[in-house]
Design a protein around this nucleic acid. Structure first.
Lengths: 125, 125
DNA sequence: CTTAGTGTATCGGTACACTAATACACTTGG
DNA sequence: CCAAGTGTATTAGTGTACCGATACACTAAG
């Protein structure tokens, strides 16, 4: 899961790290209660500063995915599926609102966006 | 059309300027061939640096909406409706691709996005 | 030709995000 | 109790976007 990061990507390192972990948690690969690698361990493996890993962990904490316990480690949180669903819906709404704002500045309507989404979504669900 | 800019907005000044002009052009308020205010004129009116207006004009130029002629002025481009339609579709595609990338990092699927889009679009077309 | 007006080009200051470095405080197992 | 391992907190360095200032090059009207 932690092969390599792309240092030249415009996506920040901490964001890349968070994205991988989030995906793993959402997919159930990391069960609630499971311990994540320690900040230093993961930092060493990814050739990155520990503070960067911390930033990723903090982001996941703010989203309710993990819990950081000083002196102990970082662990996957147990989140009720209902709450998780609401969270996802809220995040999706935020994303879409941003999209609509950008589109409005470009003079692009909702219909065009829907068409583009259908086209881009293609095979995916 | 050029009453005031919001200096405290997270949206850059040049982007606010470009958005207004783009909207005016798309709406047909500025016909092809029409001259935009000169860089200095608009800058003075908006209490902004000329370079900031230039940045807005350049953005519009990159999108094919206007043409900058040194020594002469800046003019609205005549773009065939077919090409404009393709441009908008391309822009919509770029926006949606960005959205999908963001959503993927958050573990959000296309279906949730579509639902959010439908909800947010509500009254709009 | 001259000149006033246009866009062009480059540089500097500022603010902010990102990453790293380093010292600190807590927890746990022996 | 204490040592090793964990997260915490603060600070500094780096890059980049944004905006302004200023000097330059071109165009067109008189």
């Amino acid at each position: 899961m932690f092969d390599r990061l792309d240092a030249r990507s415009p996506v920040p390192l901490y964001d890349q790290i968070a994205a991988r972990l989030r995906a793993a948690i959402v997919a159930g690969e990391l069960a609630p209660g499971a311990a994540l690698p320690s900040v230093r361990q993961l930092a060493a493996r990814l050739r990155v500063n520990p503070a960067t890993v911390v930033q990723a962990y903090r982001a996941l904490e703010a989203e309710g995915f993990v819990e950081l316990r000083q002196g102990a480690g970082t662990f996957v949180s147990a989140v009720p599926e209902s709450r998780r669903g609401r969270e996802r819906a809220a995040q999706a709404r935020r994303l879409v609102e941003g999209l609509l704002a950008d589109a409005a500045r470009l003079g692009i309507g909702v219909d065009a966006l829907r068409a583009a989404l259908d086209a881009a979504a293609g095979g995916r669900r």
